[in-house]
Amino acid sequence: MACLIAASTISILTTVGIVLSLIVESFQFFRMVPVSDFLFGLHWSPQTAIRADQVGASGAFGAIPLLAGTLLISAIALSVSGPVGLLAAIYLAEYASPRFRSLVKPMLEILAGIPTVVYGFFAAIVIAPLLRQGGESIGLEVSSESALAAGLVMGAMTIPFVSSLSDDAITAVPDSLREAALGLGSTRSETIVRVILRAALPGIAGGLLLTASRVIGETMIVVMAAGLTANLTINPLEAVTTVTVQIVTLLTGDQEFDSAKTLSAFALGLLLFTVTLTLNVAALKIVKTYREQYQ
C-alpha cells in the first residue's frame, strides 16, 4: 500500500522536477540577462556570447524572433490541420458509411503514430526541395529551410489530432439536434454547419488548443526542416527558427553550465512549458465543461 502511494507521487515528483530544474537554471540565466531583455528583445544571437560578461546590453538573448518563428510555423501547421482535420472528421462522422469509417479512421491515426523524426526527414528531403522548385518556376525565391515546408508537414502530422478530437466532439452532439434540423428541411450540410458545429464548437476549440500546444512543442520537424538563424519575419517562404530548435542547438554538444548560452535554453524551456501548459489547462477545461453539457 505504501508502495502504491509512493508510485502515485512519481507523477507529481516529475512535474516538480521539471518546474524546479527549469526555474533554477532560468533563474541563473536571468541573473546574467534581464527578464525584460529576454522577453521583449528583438535580437537573438547566443552564439556570439561565449561568456556571460559579453552579453549585457547587446540584447543577444531577445526571444521575440524565436516566438515569432514558432508562431509562424504553428499558424501554417494549424491552417492545414485545422480545416483538413475538421472536414475529415465531419465526413467520417456525418457522411461516411460505418465500413468506410472503420477503414479510414485507423489509417488517419497512423499519421499520428509515425515518429516525428520521419516527418522531419520527409520535410527536408521532399517537401522543401519541392517548394523550392515550385517557387523557382513561378519566380519566387523559397528558402531551402522555409517555414512553409516545416509548417505544412507539421500540419499533415496533426491532421489525426484535430480529426479525432473533433470527431469526439461531433459525435457527442445528441441526435435529437440532428433530427430537429433535418426535420425542418435542412440539408445535411446546413444541419452540420448551423447546428452541429455550433453545438460542438467548445469541443472543437478545445481540440484545436491541444493541437496548438502540440505544434508549439514539436521539435524534430523544425530541427530538421526549419532554420537556425533568428529571423523576424512573417514571410513563410523565408527561413525562421523556433524555440525548440534553439533549445536543441544550444544543448547539443558540450555545455558549460555557467554560460548564459547554455542557461538560455532553460529559460526557453520554461517559456515553452508555461505556454503549452496554459493552452493545455484551458483546453481540458473547455472540453470538460462541454462534455458535461451533453451528458
Binding site: 435529437s176 433530427e179 430537429a180 434540423a181 433535418l182 426535420g183 425542418l184 428541411g185 440539408t187 455550433r198
Partner: peptide, 20 residues
C-alpha cells in the same frame, strides 16, 4: 427530401431546441 420535410414538419418526443 428537403422539400418534403419543409412541407411535412415534425415535433419530437423530447423537446430539442437548438443551442441558440
Amino acid at each position: 427530401v428537403v422539400r418534403l420535410r419543409t412541407r411535412v414538419g415534425m415535433v419530437f418526443q423530447k423537446p430539442n431546441p437548438f443551442p441558440k
